[in-house]
Computed example of a mutant assay.
Amino acid sequence: MSETTLAAPDITLPPTQADLPYDDGIPMESQRHKMQMELLIDVVETWLEQREDGYASGNMFVYFSLAQLKNQDFRGPDFFAVLGVPKGERRSWVVWEEGKGPDVVIELLSPGTAATDKNEKKLIYQNQMRVPEYFWFDPFNPDDWAGFSLGSGVYQSITPNADNQLVSQALGLVLLRWQGSYKGVNTTWLRWATIDGELLPTAEEKQRQRADQEQQRADQEQQRADQEQQRADQEQQRADQVSSQLQQTARKLLQLGMTVKQVAELTGLPESAIVQLSA
């Protein structure tokens, strides 16, 4: 019987993030768009510090199909977040490598992208990527914002809650429009917050909060030290008053003709101290 050598099967493995392009060379629409993207990522990354899993990024390629790779017809969302995945740096997000796609996607509208974001991309997120939640926001027109949740395969509008916030069930957070200053620009920003409406802090804000808390603790410690010193001073003052009164009593008793020993027994003062009073 002769041996038969089987040929290795011709299998082509799909590319990984190390093999795929990760930069399309197209900049953000404006500085405001770039800052808004950074704000969304910044606060979620700070929030993820409390978790052992999770990833957030933006303006990064998200590869969800080999057909998309072949056609090169879709660029990355302005913001996306994924839970239930290991932390760590990525060049791009490759769904077949990571095992899942984004849980939440946000697109920042501009005159040149609004139509695509509201139609073509929305359908891609709904039908091909199956992203559970999709939001859009116009940094220069804060009234143009909306959220959608995937239900029965179709995006359903997310109705703002009583506080006019859009709730993300996927993250357990809310999106709200916040009037304030970020990196020196005072305007209306889209921000993540807790379900109770407490803003997720940026890394800078969290550092400042920690510094304020440390200063508050230091102030409290100093206040306690000052109070202890004040009590010690009061005790010393009372002791001095008692000592002065005893000395006055001792002098009077000596003047009445009592002996040093008798005065010492009555006042509790040392005989040596009474002798000095009688000098």
Results as ranks from 00 to 15, higher is better:
residue 71 N to W: 00
residue 71 N to A: 15
residue 144 D to S: 08
residue 216 Q to Y: 11
residue 193 A to W: 03
residue 137 F to V: 07
residue 206 K to E: 14
residue 153 G to Y: 09
residue 213 Q to F: 14
residue 151 G to M: 08
residue 16 T to H: 06
residue 136 W to C: 07
residue 69 L to G: 00
residue 181 S to G: 12
residue 122 K to H: 09
residue 34 K to E: 15
residue 198 E to Y: 05
residue 54 G to E: 08
residue 232 A to M: 07
residue 81 A to K: 02
residue 97 E to C: 11
residue 191 R to D: 03
residue 40 L to T: 01
residue 219 D to E: 15
residue 96 W to E: 03
residue 123 L to N: 04
residue 180 G to F: 11
residue 107 E to T: 04
residue 271 E to Q: 13
residue 221 E to R: 15
residue 191 R to W: 03
residue 218 A to G: 02
residue 231 R to M: 07
residue 39 L to H: 01
residue 57 S to F: 01
residue 69 L to A: 14
residue 66 L to R: 14
residue 5 T to S: 09
residue 82 V to N: 04
residue 91 R to C: 02
residue 107 E to N: 09
residue 7 A to L: 12
residue 242 V to P: 01
residue 203 A to V: 03
residue 52 E to L: 12
residue 80 F to S: 07
residue 229 Q to P: 01
residue 185 V to Y: 03
residue 188 T to Q: 15
residue 110 S to V: 12
residue 62 V to C: 13
residue 173 L to N: 10
residue 268 G to A: 09
residue 236 Q to P: 00
residue 269 L to N: 01
residue 66 L to E: 15
residue 36 Q to K: 10
residue 16 T to R: 14
residue 144 D to R: 06
residue 71 N to G: 00
residue 86 P to Y: 10
residue 85 V to E: 08
residue 63 Y to P: 01
residue 11 I to M: 12
residue 58 G to A: 10
residue 241 Q to N: 04
residue 94 V to T: 13
residue 211 A to C: 02
residue 199 L to W: 05
